[in-house]
Amino acid sequence: MTKGEQPTMDPSDSKKPEPIDRTLAGRLVLLAIAMFGFGFLLVPIYDVFCEITGLGGKTNDVAFTVEESVEQDRTVQLGFVTTVNGYAPWEFSAEVEEMAIHPGGIYEATFIATNLTDEFKTAQAVPSVAPSQAAKYFKKLECFCFTTQEFMPGETKEMPVRFIVESDLPDYIDTITLSYTFFDTARQTDTVAAAGLNTH
């Protein structure tokens, strides 16, 4: 091999790939790209999967409307749990901690939150139901979690949720917990800023 003639630059090299090679290689590249897309497709697939199975205790996030017949002779204990994520500056609680409900009946519960700062704040409440098998029978007609909640400095808000536990709730469930976690919506942008400013 003479100087300056590099193996990669060898002109005979360009003849090397057969047409069939290119087709197969091209198809394999497409397969890789398709699988990259599939990774993202798993997101909606997962959501549908959760909706069907109640996985993760996720409930509906848009208002639900259906007429149900009330099962007067069956009682289910419903508990409420409130959490504030990441030490966000809210006091957040349920008006009652527990209530007995009949599947099929429409009920209302009230949650109370106070902004503990003297700044304007917005919160997003994230619902979750335990056991997760109950999640798909738990339908919210109206909920403060459908949108973000705005709080003036020091403001206290009463926030209602109207819901139905559907009458086809399986027999093996006799206790349900509805949990709300309050997230500060500004927090996410904070993290970005913090990461950019080397505050570690």
Binding site: L28, L31, A32, I33, A34, M35, F36, G37, F38, G39, F40, L42
Partner: peptide, 11 residues
């Protein structure tokens, strides 16, 4: 590899 490395990249 072809099937799953792109999924990791996506994640």
């Amino acid at each position: 590899l072809l099937a799953v490395m792109p999924v990791l990249a996506g994640a």
